[in-house]
Design a binder for these strands. Sequence first.
DNA 1: CGCTTTATCAACTAGATGGTTGTAAACGTA
DNA 2: TACGTTTACAACCATCTAGTTGATAAAGCG
Lengths: 121, 121
Amino acid sequence: MDAAAADDRLDRAFMALADPVRRGIVARLSRGPATVTELAEPFDITTQGVSKHIQVLESAGLVTRSRDAQRRPVHLDAAALETLTEWIDRYRLIHEQRFRRLDALLASADGGDAAASAGQD
Amino acid sequence: MDAAAADDRLDRAFMALADPVRRGIVARLSRGPATVTELAEPFDITTQGVSKHIQVLESAGLVTRSRDAQRRPVHLDAAALETLTEWIDRYRLIHEQRFRRLDALLASADGGDAAASAGQD
DNA sequence: CGCTTTATCAACTAGATGGTTGTAAACGTA
DNA sequence: TACGTTTACAACCATCTAGTTGATAAAGCG
């Protein structure tokens, strides 16, 4: 997978979670597969609307659909969720390590004004 | 913070990360604060465009802006990133625990066909 | 005081998104 | 066969988004 494709995958996955209905669907699916009508039940929108939300989640790779007669049960793909936490945690940790270095510098230098220039990395 | 406000905060934060330019800004800010022109430099869009991206990140609580003469350095807020990983991990872990229970059931029952009905939870 | 740099605000456009209704396909059952 | 259930697809609409250009404000510098 090249960088552009990975970008696109992240775009869609984050976008998919930027909607309370779709997050509700993910939350429900974490407890096991469900059909479209089951997933639509808690929300005040049509099953067609929910079907479109599921398509968004599917194109983001967050869920998959199987087949059981005329039903199409939806399953959560936890690996895709992990990709998101990996992206976030990468930069969160870089940020925190930078803070720890800054703290160490402050502790050793003991000069308050030295922190301002150190902030430039 | 009530549920609707928390929902709105999550909406904005996930939405903010659903764009490669804004993720690039977050990645850059993990290495330290930067000005708007510095942040705009790697991208092929105007500083006005980048300024709007920063407003999106700010309204999502992911970054803050301070003041240094006519410059307005942007800082990353790692705590907001943590809120996102917490949301994702919550349902990822529920999903994985369910899988572990299913595995245990399969191991004790030893019946291949039993798995299909067990899948319904 | 002008000039430059840095950044924001306002207005606009093309395109995407979230919802609807209507139609139709696939499947099990009477 | 006919019927009900479940789901998808197409067309449509209101709203939002991402980018642009142009004007403006704030601060430093000649």
